[in-house]
Each structure stands twice: as structure tokens, then as C-alpha cells.
Amino acid sequence: MLAPWFGVLAAAFCAAGLYIGFFIAPTDHQQGEAYRIIFIHVPAAWMSMFLYLVMAFWAGVGLMFNTRLSGMMASALAPTGALFTFIALWTGSLWGKPTWGTWWVWDARLTSELILLFLYFGFMALQAAIDEPRRADRAGAVLALTGVVNIPIIYFSVRWWNTLHQGASVSLTSAPTMAATMFAGMVVMAFGFWFYSIATALARARCIILERERATDWVADYARVPK
């Protein structure tokens, strides 16, 4: 069972990331200590988008090749993806109030991230509403794949439209516009969240597999092995 090991890694990276974020990274000249929300907000937002893409990928594979495990993997990822989306929105709101002066605006970045949360909820609700697992997987896959277009919208929203949310501080094509220690804290937390996501996805996939296949011989044999 790999999940606990990823859990340990997650805890280690998050501890290191938080240490860097609070005790090594300096304060910000503009936002003061309020900016330290960044060490959760940005990694959570990255995870919210990344997990959706992975979920949609597995859902798509399951749809195309009729493989059972792919669909189960997609279902295993959804709750954690929704969690990080909510965290991104929640921490973003708490960060917006003291800096922008508002808890919320309907600009393109915030609105598209909220839509992402609805996509995750819709995926989970749809699968819960359909009894037959293969049909549930297929329906969920169609929704997940349709929603993939939202991911580039979220990412490029600050470039394509006028938004209150500022542009990217970190990109693949240019140097980060933040102090090195701040950037390091953010990246370490991102790895911590990533390992956490792997751990929860694996643990949840295990539950899903056992639940769905409980009528089979191999699961009966598995249950026979004493814990």
C-alpha cells in the first residue's frame, strides 16, 4: 500500500513549506503579512486545475477503451480536486478582503474557478445519481471532458480579459516576479499538496475498487487474508 508513504512525504513537504513560508520568507513591501496566504492559495489553485486535467484524462481513457480502472481513478480524484478548488476560493476571498477591499468579484479568474468547483460537484453528483457504475463512469466522463475547456480559461483569464486578479507571478517562460525564498516556499507547498493528492487518490481508489468488485472471488480472497 503506497498511500501512507505519500502521506508521509506530503506531511514532510508541507512542514518544510510552512517553515519556509513563515520563518524564512520575508514580508512583502506592498501587502505586508497578508501575502503569506499565498503559500496555500497558489498551490491549491494549481492542484485544482491539475487534478481536474488528470481526472478528465482518466475519465476519457475509460470512455475510449472501456477500461474499468480508469473510471475508478477519475472518481477517486474528484473529491480532492473539489477540496483544493474550494480552498483556493476560500483563501482567495480572505486574501482579497484586506488587499483589494472585497471578499468577491465576478471577474474572469474568480468566476471561472468557481465554475471549476461546480464542475467537480456536478461530476460527483452525477455519478452518485446513477446506480450502474459503468453508466455512471461514462456520464461523468462526458461532463469532465466537456469541462476541460474551463482550465485554459482559468489560466489565461488574467491575460485575455481585464480582471481584478493580477497576472501570473510564476510562468514557464519567464523568471518569477517574487523573491526567491517566497517562490521556494510556494513550490515546496505545491509538492506537499501534490503528494497529499496522490495519497488520497490512491486510498480512495482502493475503497472504490473494493466496493465495486465486492462480489468477485479475488476480493473475497483478499478479505480472507487476516489484517
Partner: peptide, 10 residues
Amino acid sequence: LAKHDENYMP
């Protein structure tokens, strides 16, 4: 509302 940039520095 204040709009801040994407630069973070001490």
C-alpha cells in the same frame, strides 16, 4: 478597489 501587481518582494 485596489488592484495590486504580481510582484512580491521584501
